[in-house]
Write a protein that binds this DNA or RNA. Structure first.
Length: 315
DNA sequence: AAGGGAGACAACCGCATGATG
DNA sequence: GCATCATGCGGTTGTCTCCCT
């Protein structure tokens, strides 16, 4: 027994939007707003479209300040960083990239960035775009700096004396989102170390709320409007992602990566995505050999670990 | 020049979640 | 507390374009 369709598919138009439809929708929303009711909007706007379709069209293409086209190195780095931290939470990732939509990022990841990480594409392969990943945004507002996007840099010293420096902001998510997928060990390390982690991470706090995102980040609200600002999560709902978990995960999975992948991925990754790290391969090898290894990494779908393991190896 | 394959991206589908009565 | 409905979200599919043979 399936769910009832949101609209009568026989009476609504499907497929690509025409310029006329775009104009109708845009003009209606600019004039009247969405009214908080996407279902009723198409009829009011004189469109033979499903409300969901209108919402998607508006959010992904018609609303102001949408940015299409090449992703910058900075954006690549942010996407990779967040994907490793939170997985395919495209809406959250999109909230960190001004003007980008979750759909855009998802497509970009699936068609390009993932392949880059997997080492399947040569560094300069691009059909219609400048050689990846040195692409730059043309006629687009400048991307926010790392500082703007990540907040303060963080230095974390793992169990060994090796200095492990990262510019990636720890990520916070509502605990409910993780409760269903986290393992017991994860939950412990993820949520019980808040005090210690707070010594290291510096999320922006504002009246008992934790905020992340840049000034220009654009997230969508329930009425389809563009929220210029930050995604807000109640402080009591957040957990701090432990770098210790990431680190252990890296150690535990790096042995599964073949040399070709390491070299190919590592070359691009080290040159492009990350700032230089304060450790070399020998350090990592040493750490691997000395690691006792119970993977405490948690917020990752085990089915997707390969590409993430590659990331962690070089991270 | 034509056809096929691959890549890119727009759009759809259906489940999860939150809001409301 | 429960049912219903609308919206949000991520996965998947469809279609168009480009490139290669």
């Amino acid at each position: 027994m399936g769910r009832a369709p949101c609209c009568d598919k026989a009476s609504v138009k499907r497929g690509p939007w025409s310029p006329e439809e775009d104009t109708k929708l845009k003009e209606y929303i600019e004039k009247h707003g969405t009214g908080g009711n996407w279902i009723a909007l198409p009829q009011k706007a004189g469109l033979k479209r499903c409300g969901k379709s209108c919402r998607l069209r508006w959010l992904n293409y018609l609303r102001p300040n949408i940015k299409h086209g090449d992703f910058s190195d900075e954006e690549d780095r942010i996407i990779c960083s967040l994907y490793v931290n939170i997985g395919s939470r495209w809406s959250i990732i999109a909230a960190q990239l001004p003007g980008r939509t979750d759909n855009d990022i998802k497509n970009y990841w699936n068609t390009k960035l993932k392949k880059k990480l997997m080492g399947l594409l040569p560094l300069s392969h691009h059909r219609k775009q400048p050689s990846f990943p040195s692409s730059t945004l043309q006629n687009s507002p400048p991307s926010p700096s790392s500082d703007q996007l990540y907040g303060e840099y963080c230095t974390y010293t793992p169990l060994t004396t090796t200095s492990f420096t990262s510019n990636i902001e720890p990520f916070s998510l509502p605990s409910s989102n993780y409760a269903s997928t986290s393992t017991t060990s994860v939950s412990h390390s993820f949520y019980q170390n808040q005090d210690s982690m707070q010594q290291c991470y510096h999320p922006t706090r504002d009246n008992n709320m934790l905020m992340f995102g840049s000034e220009g980040s654009c997230s969508t609200s329930s009425d389809g409007s563009c929220t210029q600002g930050r995604e807000i999560i109640k402080q009591e709902e957040i957990g701090y992602h432990s770098y210790n978990n990431d680190y252990n995960f890296m150690l535990n999975h790096s042995n599964n990566i073949n040399d070709g992948e390491k070299s190919c991925f590592g070359e691009w990754f080290s040159q492009t995505l990350l700032t230089p790290l304060d450790y070399d391969l020998e350090d990592i090898k040493q750490l691997i050999s000395s690691s006792s290894s119970t993977a405490s990494f948690n917020n990752v779908d085990e089915n997707k670990t390969e590409e993430k393991a590659m990331y962690y190896y070089y991270y």
